[in-house]
Amino acid sequence: MGQADRAYLASKGFSTILEHGADFIAHRLAPAHPVKDGRQTPWKGHPVFVAQHATGTCCRSCLEKWHGFGKGQALSAQQQTYVLAVIAEWLHREEKRL
Rank of each mutant, 00 (worst) to 15 (best):
G13M: 08
G56P: 05
K44S: 15
T55C: 03
F49G: 01
Q80T: 08
G70E: 09
A85E: 02
S76F: 00
L75W: 05
Q3I: 15
K36N: 11
G70V: 13
E19I: 12
K65S: 09
T41R: 11
T55V: 03
K44V: 12
L9M: 12
V86E: 00
T57R: 05
V86P: 00
L98K: 10
R28W: 07
K71R: 15
S11K: 15
L63A: 07
Q40A: 03
R6N: 10
A77T: 15
A30E: 13
Q40C: 00
L18Q: 03
L63T: 09
T41S: 05
P42A: 11
Q80F: 04
K12H: 15
A26D: 15
C58F: 03
S76D: 02
E19C: 12
G68F: 04
H33A: 04
R6H: 10
K44R: 13
R28G: 01
V35E: 05
H33M: 02
A7C: 05
V50K: 11
W66D: 02
E64Q: 13
P31A: 04
A77W: 12
A54G: 13
F14M: 09
P47C: 05
G21H: 08
Q80A: 06
H33R: 08
F69S: 01
M1V: 14
P47V: 06
H67A: 00
Q73H: 15
M1G: 14
F69D: 02
H33P: 01
D5H: 14
Y8W: 14
T57Q: 05
T41P: 06
A30H: 08
G38S: 09
R28T: 04
T81W: 04
H92C: 15
G13W: 07
H53K: 12
L75D: 03
H92A: 15
E64A: 13
P42S: 05
A51S: 14
H46L: 07
V83K: 02
Y8C: 09
T41L: 09
S11Y: 12
I17D: 02
W66V: 01
F24K: 04
F24I: 01
V50N: 00
W66M: 03
A4I: 10
V50D: 02
H92G: 15
K36D: 02
Q52I: 08
H46I: 11
L75F: 00
A88E: 01
I25S: 08
V83Q: 04
L75Y: 03
E19L: 13
I87Q: 02
L29T: 06
I25F: 09
G56Y: 02
F69M: 09
L9F: 14
A4G: 06
H67E: 01
V83M: 04
A22F: 11
M1C: 09
W43T: 09
H53C: 06
G38A: 07
W43Q: 08
Q78G: 14
P34C: 01
Y82W: 05
L29E: 00
C58R: 00
H20E: 13
Q80I: 11
A51W: 06
G45M: 06
G38W: 06
G45R: 03
A7T: 14
S15I: 08
W43K: 06
W90M: 01
E89A: 12
I25Y: 04
Y8N: 06
Q79N: 08
Q40I: 02
A77L: 14
V50Y: 04
A7M: 12
G70Y: 13
G45H: 01
G70W: 03
H53G: 07
P31Y: 00
I25W: 07
G13L: 11
V86Q: 00
Q52G: 10
S61G: 14
H92K: 15
L9Q: 12
L29H: 04
Q73F: 14
